[in-house]
């Protein structure tokens, strides 16, 4: 299986309830003192695209091997897509939608 590079979406109680409703309650893992994180995978191509589209984002190759520093509204949207599609492999659709709509994507409802 090809290596993936996660985007860590932190899960509070509200988000956890939504994940459970989507049948994804067992997806987050506990990382630090009970804090839950949902690792949304990206391929190497998707990772590079994320880093290019969101210049503030960084790939932490040294410690977490994850994409970090994505703004909240970006991760909120990724989370909404996970819940709507009831799966975590959503980055292809996320990137395609953002590339089509640009900043208008942030205010669009996920159909």
């Amino acid at each position: 299986m090809a290596e993936t590079y996660p985007i860590n979406v932190w899960i509070n109680e509200d988000r956890f309830e939504k994940l459970k409703s989507a049948g994804l309650g067992d997806m987050p893992r506990e990382v630090l003192a009970g804090m839950k994180v949902l690792a949304v995978p990206t391929t190497d191509v998707q990772r590079d695209k994320v880093l290019k589209l969101f210049s503030m984002a960084k790939y932490d190759a040294a410690t977490t091997k994850s994409i970090e520093q994505l703004p909240k509204h970006v991760k909120d949207k990724i989370f909404d897509l996970v819940v709507a599609r009831k799966k975590i492999d959503v980055m292809e659709e996320f990137l395609s939608k953002f590339e089509q709509a640009g900043d208008a994507f942030w205010s669009q409802q996920i159909a």
Binding site: N8, W10, V31, S66, L70, K72, K75
Partner: peptide, 9 residues
């Protein structure tokens, strides 16, 4: 990095 991610979210 983890703490920053939590706060960022």
């Amino acid at each position: 990095t983890l703490i920053r991610g939590i706060l960022m979210d």
